[in-house]
């Protein structure tokens, strides 16, 4: 440090401008990188929030769908789920389940009991790209097993794949 301060040869003096300019350029590049990274993160989070709202809305809608209701409106029938879950036994019912939803929103539904003993997956026939991002939303439901003798708590989860053209 002392050598640098007491240097009288002025070897560095003509290049001070270049050094300071290089520092400014590096600082600007770092600043631009931070700003663009912050924007990309914000954009990603806002996309996730938008799609979470949509997934949450679809999950609530499916939880109240009359086609899978049990003996009461607040129950989901396990028998109905057996008919439309993969592999679908009742093609017509499966088709009607997805009919209301636009083909642009690519999603599948997972329903499981909290004790993990029963699990159903309802998905469209077309194959999906597993590499795309997924946004999921869940709602608590009550599943009616058998003929109404046994009701167990569970979770209905809707998983939306990121749309290809957005």
């Amino acid at each position: 440090m002392c050598w640098f301060i007491n240097d009288d040869d002025a070897f560095m003096e003509p290049h001070n401008d270049i050094i300071s300019t290089a520092l400014v350029v590096i600082g600007f590049v770092v600043f631009a990188a931070i700003v663009s990274e912050a924007y990309l993160t914000f954009d990603e989070n806002s996309f996730a929030l938008d799609n979470y709202r949509q997934a949450s809305m679809i999950a609530k809608d499916i939880a109240e769908y009359p086609g899978i209701q049990g003996s009461r409106t607040d129950l989901i029938s396990a028998e109905a789920l057996d008919m439309i879950s993969v592999p679908a036994k009742d093609r017509e019912m499966h088709e009607m389940f997805f009919h209301r939803f636009s083909g642009n929103v690519d999603f599948y539904v997972e329903i499981n009991t909290n004790d993990k003993e029963h699990q159903w997956m309802i998905r469209r026939d077309r194959s999906n790209d597993p590499e795309r991002d997924i946004i999921a939303a869940s709602v608590p439901v009550v599943i009616e097993l058998g003929s109404g003798a046994c009701c167990v708590p569970g979770t209905l989860t809707v998983r939306i794949w990121k749309n290809r053209w957005i």
Binding site: D50, Q54, I58, R100, F101, S102, N104, V105, W165
Partner: peptide, 9 residues
Amino acid sequence: AFKPLAYRT
């Protein structure tokens, strides 16, 4: 700005 619709419209 494009947004896909969830329901058939």
